[in-house]
Design a protein around this nucleic acid. Structure first.
Lengths: 241, 241
DNA sequence: TCTTGACCCTCCCCTTGGAGGAGTCTGTAC
DNA sequence: GTACAGACTCCTCCAAGGGGAGGGTCAAGA
């Protein structure tokens, strides 16, 4: 009736999550309406990707329900974010493959180092250099200038912030977003690109119609191009007053 | 050097994914540069969440590479979509819990039936009725009118289409989107709501600033509110000419 | 009453990608 | 010589069941 396999019922019986209300003398598991209802609850929570142990707790102890669900939401949001990063990496690697570029294994390796590993590596390097040369490199923040264009870094950080804001439901007109954009424009202007708020808005509007930019932004985060455009427009409107 | 645990190396050795180039007489696994490079490739693919077996195939058989990656992309996109649905369900169930509504188990059950199961159920019901009354219900498409308000149904279908378009990277100004909006407005106007394209654009712009609507739309799909607004604006602009 | 086919039962092994531990051995540094 | 780190093998464990062997049970039709 509910579409679960008999194997699943065996399993739930074994771990005590769903017991049959009766077992026939031939050993058949028999379930009643109450059990069916419980099963439906189990399936609902399972659909939320809760582990069976958590489901068992949820079904026994009512009060904890909300906190368990909230934690699960956080986990899922993290997973989603991670998934989005992975998809982006995958698409990049596929498109560079299409262009016939053979992937440089070092670049590959660099690309996926987690932030943590990266920091650890820096830490190590730093300690080593401090040891050898007696000065602290981390504070001077010059390290990645070697490997990464400063402007690209700023742009990536800006986009990451914007995408993060979109995901967490911050409105495009919020002060935080406006501040991000202002800082980004200040940075741009400091580096030889004269960009007014209106220019920036126009530029982001252009992204919506341009395949390359649209794909890049949407690859990073679904809806990012549209969110960015709305935010830039809002910022330009606010600045004009 | 690459940060993998020795346990992982044992495992890769055992399943034949990465063999040491030499084993010392004491039994120590020794790896050379070639192996390190292979490991880096493995780690890269692992980061894309490919199963180790697929990684092994990828590393042995060059030509299949692209198709495997493409399939993986599809899988990941599916997972992402599914994750988004789950998160939405979870958020809905949490917010209804906060309002103190105790969840009706039947509603719960309805909520998570997969599209496939749903269709199968309809199919069955249909066959049965056809058998009993000699006519085909599926074609008349009247089934869900019982359970669902027609307008809510249309709105939900419309939003689903829009969200789908956003996810698949269709531009907001594309003819397909414009057609969707046109049909939606025609439907609305047929049902007693006089909505001009400009009204609709204003309404969607209003959603961006309204907590309730923003959360609802963004809950369905990140970026949906912004995409919808851009599309409505574009539609209104096109209609005005 | 017998057979047939569809289910069900228990028991055991297998899946992923390693993690953890016990007991032992090796390599290096003081 | 001896301590200590780290590698070795072998074993078990995780989640949520899946697959299959070998055998029992149920209901219907002949």
């Amino acid at each position: 009736m509910s579409g679960v396999t008999v194997k699943t019922l065996h399993h739930y019986h074994k771990i005590g999550l769903l017991l049959p209300c009766e077992v026939s003398e031939a050993g058949y598991r028999l379930y009643g309406m109450k059990e069916l209802e419980r099963l439906q609850h189990i399936l609902f929570y399972r659909e939320l990707e809760l582990p069976l142990k958590e489901i068992a707790r949820l079904l026994e102890e009512e009060p904890e329900r909300h906190s368990i669900l909230a934690r699960q939401e956080e986990l899922l949001l993290l997973r989603k974010q991670r998934l989005e990063t992975i998809i982006q990496t995958l698409q990049q690697s596929m498109s560079s493959m299409e262009k016939g570029e053979i992937m440089n294994s070092k670049d590959m390796f660099k690309g996926f180092e987690s932030a943590q590993e990266w920091e650890e590596a820096l830490e190590e390097q730093n300690l080593h250099l401090k040891d050898a040369y007696g000065y602290d490199m981390l504070d001077s923040a010059e390290i990645d200038a070697q490997s990464m264009n400063e402007q690209a870094l700023e742009a990536a950080a800006f986009m990451n912030h914007i995408a993060e804001a979109l995901r967490t439901g911050i409105k495009h007109s919020e002060a935080e977003i406006q501040r991000l954009i202002r800082e980004h424009l200040v940075f741009m202007n400091k580096h030889g690109h004269t960009v007014t708020p209106a220019d920036f808005a126009a530029q982001t509007r252009f992204f919506l119609g341009d395949d390359f930019h649209l794909r890049m932004l949407e690859g990073q985060q679904t809806g990012l191009a549209y969110y960015l455009s709305a935010a830039a427009e809002s910022y330009a409107a606010a600045e004009q007053q």
